[in-house]
Design a protein around this nucleic acid. Structure first.
Length: 489
DNA sequence: CGCAGCACTGCTATCAGTGCTGCGGTGCTATAGT
């Protein structure tokens, strides 16, 4: 007798499981660890929400963005699941205290990796019956955990503290390397591994080398005048995002907006909402834009600057064509583009001078805080947290080498790793004799490529059909929209 | 694999070349002050 289905219908209103869901849910219920790579829209959340409600105790869900947590809790509450909360800095101190005191009354609690590390939180979890620990958008562990948000690498410690509950890692895109890294960093034991294909057959992949920035802009202007809308343009600086938004607005008469981390929360929310409502034709953004965006009709993603590795690229182009209709990924690059990612890579780490200073300071307490490092040495915040994390790691280790050497070797290893990822990306851009899709999928350990037409610039030209769509769209418009469009021209 | 902006230099032009420096992305949190 199948008990899962009635439960599914009662709490989530579905009559059947989607591909893969059932197996994952059963594994979590049985106390197994899971690594799941599921395509967007295939019901990732259900994989932890179902077991969370099914099992006794409280499920802890680690989520990277406050906005994602808020959305999830809101959705749960709307579908009648009220014992859900997000524990984060949006809450006032009394509200936080209230949630912590009554943790056991909740079935699902969302939390950031940073908040998870708070001593009050950790000590509460120690006494709590944690039904499962889920890490949503788990690729963040591998993408952010080593340098930018090191608390991602400390999740396993809290997991141990909470009595080793079953752990489920969920993501839409993780390369073969990232998958290995995630499993290792979370200490998943014999996990059930479920991987959907990351291939997106309705996205045509195009790469074009340009002589210089001027040529890139020319191409941008041309493409924005004929590609179906809406679309996205990725750049690697905030200033450039603003600049290109203005450029396309002026040159093409399109509704554009920039989006980057330097904007206020209100502006970001507004722009995002306008884009989702089809009130913006082209959004020019840094990598701040994307996570949690589920807009079905994005027709193109142009990379005005290329992303730093293959999996960021996959994530970024994967935002196009969620509705299944023909879409386009276009990368424009020139010889000077390699400079910035290398500079940024170096800038991610503290300098040798800073490491020496910190390592040899006799006044530095053993369990130093990032705040201490920040104030005493005037380090950048990210560098201070990076150092704090690896200093602690050194104290936990056998300390066979001096602290300075330990940190330097970590940095060297990570730099080499990241540089190799960047080179892999550049190799992929430059090579002109292999199918781009085949080469892209190999990074994700997929070797049985489907025959896709149109596929990519190497397999064959494909432009006319795509451009045709814009014309079709324009003739579908109402007279008001058409008038607006004509006035723009 | 750059580029803009600045100070400096040589030696007297309000310049022309050189060389240095800074820039550049992702988000959480806590806390002080309106």
């Amino acid at each position: 007798m199948d008990k899962l289905k009635p439960f599914l219908e009662k709490h989530f209103g579905h009559t059947t499981f989607k591909e893969g869901q059932r197996q994952i849910i059963e594994a979590v219920i049985n106390g197994e660890d899971v690594f799941a790579m599921l395509a967007t829209g295939s019901g990732k959340s259900l994989c932890y929400q179902f077991p969370a409600l099914w099992k006794k105790g409280t499920a802890i869900i680690v989520s990277p963005l406050l906005s994602l947590m808020e959305n999830q809790v809101q959705e749960l509450k709307q579908s009648g699941i009220r014992q859900a909360a997000a524990y984060n800095s949006f809450l006032s101190p009394p509200e936080k205290e209230h949630i912590l005191r009554h943790l056991a009354d909740y079935k699902i609690v969302y939390i950031s990796p940073e908040s998870l590390q708070h001593p009050e939180v950790a000590s509460r979890l120690e006494k709590l019956n944690v039904s499962l620990l889920a890490v949503d958008e788990a690729h963040c562990i591998s993408q952010w955990g080593h340098e930018f948000r090191t608390d991602y690498l400390r999740i396993k410690e809290i997991r141990r503290l909470a009595g080793n509950p079953p752990c489920i890692a969920l993501t839409a895109t993780a390369s073969a390397d990232a998958k290995k890294d995630i499993i290792e960093k979370l200490e998943l034991t014999n996990p059930l591994v479920h991987c959907d294909s990351v291939d997106r057959p309705n996205i045509y992949i195009d790469v074009r080398k340009k002589k210089n920035e001027e040529e890139k802009r020319e191409t941008l202007r041309e493409e924005c005048s004929r590609l179906p809308l809406p679309g996205m343009i990725y750049v690697n600086s905030r200033l450039k995002a603003e600049e290109l938004a203005a450029f396309i607005r002026e040159e093409n008469g399109l509704k554009t907006s920039a989006y980057h981390g330097g904007m206020s929360n209100e502006d970001r929310r507004l722009v995002q909402q306008q884009f989702l409502n089809d009130e913006i034709d082209v959004i020019c953004c840094t990598n701040a834009f994307g996570m949690g965006i589920n807009k079905p009709n994005i027709r193109f993603v142009i990379h005005y600057h290329y992303s730093k590795d293959m999996e960021s690229f996959m994530q970024e182009i994967g935002r196009a064509g969620r509705d299944g209709r023909q879409s386009l990924s276009l990368v424009l690059y020139d010889a000077a583009d390699g400079m910035l990612p290398r500079r940024m890579l170096e800038h991610e780490f503290p300098s040798e001078e800073e490491i020496r200073m910190v390592s040899h300071d006799p006044d530095r307490p053993e369990w130093t805080t990032s705040r201490f490092l920040l104030e005493r040495y005037g380090l950048e915040e990210v560098h201070a947290r990076f150092l704090q994390f690896y200093i602690h790691k050194w104290y936990q280790s056998s300390r066979t080498q001096p602290l300075e050497d330990f940190i330097s070797s970590v940095i060297q290893r990570r730099m080499e790793w990241k540089l190799q990822k960047l080179k892999q990306k550049e190799y992929w851009l430059h090579q002109k004799d292999r199918c781009r899709r085949t080469a892209l999928l190999e990074v994700f350990d997929e070797h049985n490529k489907n025959i896709v037409t149109p596929c990519c610039d190497v397999c064959g030209e494909y432009t006319m059909h795509v451009y045709q769509q814009r014309k079709e769209r324009e003739s579908e418009l109402s007279w008001e929209e058409r008038l607006k469009w004509i006035l723009h021209q």
